[in-house]
Every structure is written in structure tokens, then in C-alpha cells.
Amino acid sequence: MNRRGFLKLAGTVGATLAAKKAKARDNDDEKEEFVGVLTDTTRCIGCRTCEVACAEAHGLPVPDVQNDGALEAERRTSDTQWTVVNRYETDEGDVFVKKQCMHCWQPGCTAACLTNAMYKTHAGPVIWRSDKCMGCRYCMISCPFEIPKFEYDSWNPKIHKCNMCWERLQEGQKPACVDACPTDALMFGRKRELMEVARVRIYNHPQKYVHQVYGEHEVGGTGWLYLSSVPFEQLGFRTDLGTTPYPDYTREFLYAVPVVLFAVPAFLLGLRFLSENEEELEEGESHA
């Protein structure tokens, strides 16, 4: 067994264990490491089996992969497609990239949600809970990857986005797309382990991969990770997002809220007393 084969096996075993652990109910007290998925775009053949598996797992319209010619144009996820595969023509030939929610470590969408309908589970996946959502679409404003999608044609609209098959994880299974992938382009496991696998692949094939794992540090780190043979800009990835978690941009403002509420009323009352005294003095003088 060569080194790569071993790592692959180890990864699979790790992933299965991870899924078993994720089965443990989402418990607030429990400190468990996040799960995620590593996408190796050099292995993806653009068969879109993942799209079909995803649609079947979530009751969405199943795409006609053979005949719909969807690879011709770049697509975004939508309110009927939680994941899409795009083809990019690059220096290294055609590269296929699967796109879905990145499951950020500190998601902008969950920080934006005023009812916690968008929720970061303690196992890692970011999920949406319909009984809480009021449809304000602030999550769509705040997501740096523009993933949450809204049903504009419904009187009772839902937000659609990948939930890393949260319901399957709770049953100890892997996400549907990972199970369906025929080329092992997708690997499910703990993020820490996935990062190790990714680094080993780059180290073993320094010519094949760009020396970056997309998602390691982007917007504070994401649960979904990508390996690529070409610079990520060429694959429709935004490389200008920085490494600051998105909720950090509002944290200081929200920190200031109690400060303002402590200080300003007292300050205003003080001003009021000052201006009152002046009036009384004037009145006193005029009376005298």
C-alpha cells in the first residue's frame, strides 16, 4: 500500500468515526471539533452525481445531468439547487468546482439572524430553522459567499442553502454528496484531519497543487475546504475576502451598545441639570 492509499484509507476511517460522533445530539455544553468536507478539484470529473444526490436527499427537483447542458454557463446555487458544479477553462485545462455553503467557523449569516433561524450547530454545519425565520433576508446581505437563497415566488418563503446534510449526520451517515462522489473528490471528516490530508497532498505533489487550501483561513476559516491545481481566482473563488470572520465587523458596534446606553442617558440628564440651574439663576436675579 502506497502512502497515498494509506492516507485515503485513514481519511475514510476518520470520516466514518467523525460521522458517528456527529450523531451525538447537538449539545451546547459539549466541545466537539467541527466536521467539514475537503473538495479536491483535481479529482472532480464534473459528473454532477453530487447534485443529483443532494436534490434527492432534500426533496428538490432532480437535475437531468445527461441532457440539461448546465455546465455551459457558470451557475450559482439557487432556491432549488443547494449545490452546483461549474466548469472553468484554465491553464491546466477544464477544472470542475462544486459550489455550496462553506459552513464558516464564524458565519456572517448566523450573526445576522435576529431570530437565530440561521444557526451554527456545535458540530459544524450551518442550518436553517423554518419556525424561527421571519424572511428579512439579512443573512443574504451578510454572507460573503452569497449562499442563502430566498423563495421569491411563495407566500410562505423558505431560505435554501446546503446544511451539510445535518439530518443524515445525526443518523451517523455522511453527507449525500460525499457518499455519491464516484472519484473521491469529496472527503468528509473533522476539519483538523482534513487540513492534514490536504497538506500531505500538497507536500507529496508540489507541482500538481497550488500551495493553498481555500477555506483554511478565508473569513476566519470555513468548514468546506478546497484543493486546486490552478490559482483560486481562476475558479470563481473570491480571494479578496480577507481572514477576518465576518461577525467581527459588527462586534465592536454591538459592544458599544451597552456603553451608549449606560453613558448617554446620564450625560443628557447632566446637561439638562446644567441648563436648568442656569435658568433658575437668571430667575433669581430677575426676582431680586
Binding site: T110, A112, C113, T115, K132, Y138
Partner: peptide, 17 residues
């Protein structure tokens, strides 16, 4: 569902909104 952030289903106090 507009009453949710008022009645606590849930209090999303992490949100500017």
C-alpha cells in the same frame, strides 16, 4: 414571525437587526 425576536424564539442578540 416578526414577534419571534420579541418573544424569544430566539433572541438573536448577536444581530445588528
Amino acid at each position: 414571525n416578526i414577534i419571534n425576536p420579541i418573544i424569544g424564539n430566539d433572541f438573536g442578540y448577536n444581530s445588528v437587526l
